[in-house]
């Protein structure tokens, strides 16, 4: 329970404000995934499975594919391998946080690592914590809120099933828009522009070769290869040092 004590209103308020786009995206997408799950299981217990799957694997693409696996009764070893392929990028995300999370109590650290989705990662990298607030508390608030949105969305979808009160087609653009906003802000910093361009180029190159649902891993590898090969040019610290030496 330790992690809940450190939350104060200012931090929660800031985290809630900054996660609003994720709220829209997760609830809308989670709802769709929940509807799909209920449709596949056709059991009064499907809301329970919605809670269990969304709490444990907190991952949008996985949640959707999970339903397909249930339908096909895909063997579990194959499920494990496909999950590795699908979620390999999470192993890369952690690299940005090794230093930041060092020395934290294990419960906080475990939760932060466990709950790190694409969107939570993006918000934690950006870390728009209120002034003077502990950035870790802010990250925890973001992680918990995002996690809650996802579980609520999937569970509500499984409960309500196919009955939709309004036409919400296109609401998932909130997710794309969120990434665009973060990218725009990152690119205000000169050092981030080339890495961003390389990431985008790697994704385009990968999409030319692979279908959409398989493009992320090759894109990740392309990007990693370029980053490793071009380190001398891209390393912000090295550039900063050589810049000082010149001036």
């Amino acid at each position: 329970m330790g992690i809940y004590y450190r939350m104060n209103k200012t931090i929660l308020h800031a985290a809630f404000k900054n996660t609003l786009p994720v709220l829209m995206g997760y609830v809308a997408m989670g709802f769709a995934a929940g509807v799909l799950l209920a449709d596949t299981l056709r059991s009064p217990w499907s809301p329970l499975w919605a809670v269990l799957t969304s709490v444990t694997s907190i991952s949008g693409a996985l949640q959707f594919i999970l339903t397909g696996w249930i339908r096909l009764a895909t063997p579990l070893p194959e499920v494990a391998l496909l999950t590795v392929c699908l979620n390999l990028r999470y192993a890369m995300y952690g690299l940005s946080f090794i230093e930041k999370f060092r020395g934290l109590p294990w419960k906080q650290k475990f939760y932060l690592i466990w709950a790190m989705t694409d969107e939570t990662y993006a918000l934690e990298v950006e870390c728009r914590a209120p002034q003077g607030a502990n950035p870790i508390s802010y990250c925890l608030a973001v992680a918990m809120l995002d996690h809650a949105y996802w579980v609520i969305g999937v569970t509500a979808g499984a409960l309500v099933g196919g009955i939709l009160p309004f036409d919400n087609r296109g609401i998932d653009f909130a997710m794309t828009a969120l990434f665009l906003v973060i990218l725009t802000d990152q690119c205000r910093e000169r050092a981030n522009r080339w890495p961003a361009l390389i990431g985008a180029a790697a994704a385009v190159a990968s999409r030319l070769i692979f279908p959409v649902d398989r493009m992320l891993i090759p894109a990740m590898l392309f990007m990693l290869a370029v980053f490793l090969a071009a380190r001398k040019r891209l390393d912000p610290e090295r550039n900063a040092k050589s810049g000082e030496a010149r001036s």
Binding site: R89, M92, Y93, L95, S96, F97, I98, E99, D118, Y121, A122, V125, M175, T176, F179, L180, I182, L183, Q186, C187, A191, N192, R193, P195, A196, L197, I198, G199, A200, A202, A203, V204, R207, V212, M215, L216, A219, M220, M223, L224, F227, L228, R231, L234, D235, P236, E237
Partner: peptide
């Protein structure tokens, strides 16, 4: 690793933007 952490952040976000559009 520190270098990768720094460049991967904007790189991965840009990649996800392209992925979303695709």
């Amino acid at each position: 690793i520190g270098y990768l952490g720094k460049v991967l952040a904007p790189g991965a976000i840009a990649m996800l933007v392209v992925f979303c559009f695709c």
